[in-house]
Amino acid sequence: MKMQYNLPCNIAQTLNIIGDKWSLLILHQILVGRETYKEIHDELTGIPTNLLSERLKSLEIDGLIKRELYQSHPPRNKYTLTKKGYDLEDVFNSIILWGEKHLDTCYKKLVHKNCNHSIEHRYYCSNCNKVVKIEDISVLDPNEQ
């Protein structure tokens, strides 16, 4: 059974879904095109097979991936991200950007496909049509409005 945070916090509640060991890495493998159990397992050196099976089931229950049978004997499934799962792409990119800035060894970089130069993360307000500085962002509790 997964450890659950019992806090009224978006971060804590999101971690209840994707914060256990391997889940984000599994989701990232599916995002980059690895669809089968074998493809995912081969890329995630060190993950026990029973844990991969458990995480895939949990991610399906949480609505982040969907499973589709592509072979019946023996049963083989392919996994794809749902819309909810694809919405984690910004999280993956933010983690990559953080790693570029803070890891001793940088393994991946985010670059603009057209010119191959590094990109930056920006916040944008669609109401004002402006880029917003981080110091001008506040966290709002909708229950306190």
Rank of each mutant, 00 (worst) to 15 (best):
L97Q: 02
V132Q: 10
L27A: 06
I26Y: 01
L24G: 02
E35Y: 02
D90R: 11
K133L: 12
Q29L: 05
I137G: 06
E135Y: 08
G33Y: 01
F92C: 03
L52N: 07
E89W: 04
L97K: 09
K21I: 13
L140Q: 08
D104T: 11
K66E: 13
N77R: 07
I119Y: 06
L44E: 03
S72F: 09
P75F: 03
I134E: 15
S72D: 12
K83A: 10
C115F: 02
S118Q: 15
Q29V: 02
K130L: 13
N77Q: 06
V111Y: 04
W98F: 14
I95G: 05
T80C: 07
K57V: 07
D136A: 03
Y107V: 02
E60A: 14
D87M: 14
K78A: 08
W22R: 05
D141P: 08
I61N: 10
N116E: 15
K133D: 15
I134A: 15
G33S: 02
S53T: 14
C128Y: 09
D104W: 07
K130S: 13
L140S: 03
T36S: 15
T82Y: 06
Y37G: 02
Q71H: 00
I65T: 02
I137Y: 08
C128W: 01
C125S: 15
I65M: 01
V131L: 10
N50L: 11
N93V: 03
K101R: 14
S94L: 13
E100K: 11
L64V: 05
E35M: 04
L88Y: 05
I65G: 00
C106N: 12
P75V: 02
K101V: 10
N127K: 14
K101I: 11
D141Q: 11
K133V: 04
I65K: 03
Y124Q: 04
G85Y: 04
K109A: 09
L88M: 08
S138F: 06
I65Q: 03
K130H: 10
N129H: 11
Y107Q: 07
L64M: 09
N50T: 14
W98H: 14
I40H: 00
H41K: 15
R55T: 05
D42V: 02
P48N: 09
E43G: 07
G46E: 04
K38T: 07
I47T: 05
G63F: 05
I61Q: 12
I134T: 15
K38F: 03
G33N: 03
G85V: 09
D20P: 00
I137F: 08
I61F: 07
I40Y: 00
N129S: 13
K83Q: 11
C106M: 13
V32A: 08
K38C: 00
I137W: 03
K109P: 01
Y123V: 11
I26Q: 00
K113T: 09
Y70E: 07
H73F: 09
L64R: 02
L81H: 04
S94Q: 13
